[in-house]
Structure formats: C-alpha cells, structure tokens
Amino acid sequence: MDLTVFGIYWYFSGNEIGYSKFKKVSSGTTHDDPQYDISKLIVKTYLNRTDILKENGSLLLHNLKLTDSGEYTVKLEGEKISTKKLVLKVTGHQGGERSDTELKIQSETIYGQESQSVLLNISYHFPRSSTVFGIYWDFSENEIGSCKFINCLAWSKFNESGCEIVKLFITSYKDRADIIKENGSLLLHNISLNDAGNYKVRLEAGTITTGRITLKVLQYPQGHTTEIWSSEANYIRLSISSVVVVLIICIIVLHFNITGPKYPSQIITSAEKEAEDIQKASMNMGNDLVYSEKM
C-alpha cells in the first residue's frame, strides 16, 4: 500500500519506548530509497541501547536486563491503526560471562511475499573476549554474504575506535541483501520464487556455530484476465446478435415500402421468408465470428 505518512510505535508495559515516522517525499518502492523522510524518537531510558529498524519496524534491544522481561506492544498507524503484542522473557546466567558462542533461531520456517522484503531473524552471542568474529549466510550450500567484525568488542555497539565492519555479498545479492550487524539477521529485498529454499547461518569466533532457516515464498494470485476476456467476448457476441436483429427489421420495413402494400397473407409470407433467409445468413455470420474469437 502506498501511504504518504505512517508510523511505527513501540511500548513496554503500556509506556512508550519510541517511534519511527515515515513521510513520503518522492515516488519509490522501499524505505531504503530516499523517497521517505524518517523521523525517529527513543525515550531517554532506552536511548543508548534501543533502535527501531527502518527496514521492517522491528525493535532492537542491546544489553538486555532481567527487567526487560514483559509485554511489548507495537502499533502501526497509516490509513488504519493495528496493534500486536509480544512477550519477551530474559534469562540470567550463573557463573559470570559465557565463554561460548551462542546462536538463536527465532523461527526455523519463514514465509515471505513475492516482490516484498523478508527478514531471516536470528540473534547471536560472541564471547566477551572476541575481537575478530564473523557471520556468514549460505543459500543452498553456496555462500551469499558475510559480515566480519575486526577489532570490535562483541558486547559493544561497534562504535569504538578502530572497530571495522566489513560486509561482502556476491553479485546477485549485492543490491538486495543486508546482514543486520546488531543481531546477524539476513534481510532480503524484492524476493522471488527463486529465493525459496534452505538458508544456513554460520558464526565464527574461534569455534563455528551453525543454524538453518527455510524460506517459503508466497506467490501473488493470478489475475482474472481469462474471465474478463470471456465476459468481453460474450458482450461482443451479444452486441453482434442485437445488430443482426435490428438489421433484419430494417430490411423488412424497407422492402415493404419499396414493393408497396400487398394482401396481408402475402406480406406475412414474404416477410417470413425473407426474415428466415436473413436469419440463416446471420447465424452463419455469428458462427464465423465466434469461430474467429476462438482461433
């Protein structure tokens, strides 16, 4: 739906966390293009650890706390207002910082709509001591892209001095794919039926951790071109039949005026004969027309 103004609002336990508002400034098809002015606001308590992704409106929380557990509400405002509730459960860990790499798959099967964008949603945890680590995505066992972190702190927001993030994609994905650095999710734009299949994500930080997601792409329903054409064809045949009937009547009246009055029985007999001849001719004409439409 092409909206001029719309907004995405997030709440936690009834209190607003923040919002993103989109205002159309030029024509286009995706939020990544410069056709929307985006204004974003995050409340002070979430300012340094929260973001609302412009690509799909998801809420991204950094440095989770046990107090972040609870009910979240997202509200979409456009031509209509719709809301959705989600529950977040934050678990604690005993014995200090984890030393392993952890990968979480949000859903093993994702559904996307043809020509739209889709997010293969994951989250990760790298050991706190990691300074070089990477996220790699494969499709049908072939690598399509990677996101490598060099001299970065795994627990930070990757804005420290010297932190370098390198993203690489193969040519066919370069202009329509992204790896969200904050959680490792793969974002695909303008998907097609060819994108359906098995994806593998791989985390590397000394050790290798992998996971798999299946993408199913839903196709737009076929149009009703055949039915519409059929209705038009019926209308054409009906119009031709009506013209033939009117033509028959005109010919009968014209013949009567030229030949002059006759006895009633002669008029009826002559008119019926001529009408019958013309009707046979028109039926043959109609059959030819119908046959031509089916060619």
Rank of each mutant, 00 (worst) to 15 (best):
E227A: 12
Y235S: 14
S231T: 13
K75C: 07
T269D: 07
G206A: 08
T207D: 13
T73M: 09
S156Q: 06
G134C: 05
G260A: 01
V87C: 00
T4P: 01
S146V: 07
K54S: 12
M285N: 02
I135C: 04
S130N: 07
D51T: 14
T131Y: 01
K294M: 13
E272Q: 14
E143H: 04
V90L: 08
C163M: 12
F149E: 06
M1W: 00
Q279C: 00
T207Q: 13
G162R: 05
G95I: 06
T269I: 05
T131I: 10
G206R: 07
G145K: 02
I240M: 06
F22A: 06
A281P: 03
E204S: 13
T29G: 08
S99C: 12
I213V: 07
G286R: 01
D37F: 11
Q279G: 01
N142C: 01
T131F: 00
E276Q: 10
K174T: 09
K181I: 11
H93S: 14
I170D: 14
G197T: 09
K24M: 10
D288Q: 12
L88C: 03
G162Y: 01
K174V: 10
N56R: 03
H62E: 06
K216S: 12
G145L: 02
N142Q: 14
S123N: 05
K200W: 02
E272W: 10
I150E: 10
G70F: 10
I170Y: 11
E293Q: 15
Y46P: 05
V132L: 04
T171H: 03
K262R: 09
G96M: 10
N15E: 12
F6V: 14
L103G: 04
I165V: 15
E204D: 14
N56D: 15
A154Y: 07
F133Y: 15
S117M: 06
A271G: 11
Y136A: 06
E143G: 14
A177I: 10
E227Y: 02
L188C: 05
N63C: 02
W10D: 01
